[in-house]
Amino acid sequence: MNGERVAFVILCLIFVGLPAAAFGYQHARTAGAGVRVVDLEARLPGVGGWEPEVLRLKAGEPVRLRIHSPDVLHSFAIGRTEVGPVDVVPGQLTEIEFSIDEPGTYTFYCTRWCSTDHWRMRGTLEVVAADGSIPLSSMEPAPYISLGIELDEGRGQPEGQVPAPALAPSAARGAELALSPPPISIADTPAGIFQQLRVSYPGRSDGDLWAVVAHAWQQKARASELVLGENLYSRDCAACHGLDGRGDGIMARDLPEEPRDWTDAERLMGASDALLHGKIVRGGMGTGMPGWGDIYTDAEAWALTDFVRFFGFRP
């Protein structure tokens, strides 16, 4: 073989072999994955968000998502499931493999604050049953609906003329007092329980009675739930509501309505757990507060409710 032929072969390797090898290797990786491979682009919500916005799988079918971000750090998770979150580092392909057995409609979302519109970065995952149907969500309606609580009315004003606690009441102090508060339901407000206690223990100071209220709520919440609630709060809420609940988070500046200051006792004490929970799962229509009902499991939503409650109480 003469030199010119050798040169020609080398040249073919570069102009044909190199591209063929690159695309072929990528194709082989996809085809040889053994599972269905789906590409998902994670863009800033202002320039497209998830692409595609709707994913469709068969129930129980394992799938590998290959997620790519062209701009900033995002993250991927599927609401009300164990899938994710995984970080999506710009320019680095993130692969996640999973299967979902329960047919239905799910929401996948970004868990990393990526712009003021971060919470808009949600997509729909349809898990199709064996018979080809996609059952409607089997979620039970949130309790605020059956209780008839109007989320947008009154904005959680205290019931009647209740003197709000000056300082956040201490649950520990309430425990020491060893009084017996009435049983608490999710429709009760701290202010309501306080009034009942006032009737039962007329001789006690307001401070003591608020401490008992705090203790009563602490009895209700488990420590592990408070930790879960804190993690969710830190991840999803703190950017607007502020790490300490004052409503002064960095993202609050662009909201149509300023978030509530939860350290303001007068407001929080007038709100029942069902109302707080309802606001979390439904969102605040028009205020910029997103709804989390499609994302949190029941346990998560209640854990977050309990955590938020403790902006008004001390342990």
């Binding site: 800033l44 701009d71 900033v72 750090l73 990393r112 990526c114 712009s115 960095i250």
Partner: peptide, 10 residues
Amino acid sequence: VIELESVDAT
């Protein structure tokens, strides 16, 4: 102490 606060993305 440099306190770095991001206002859009990470």
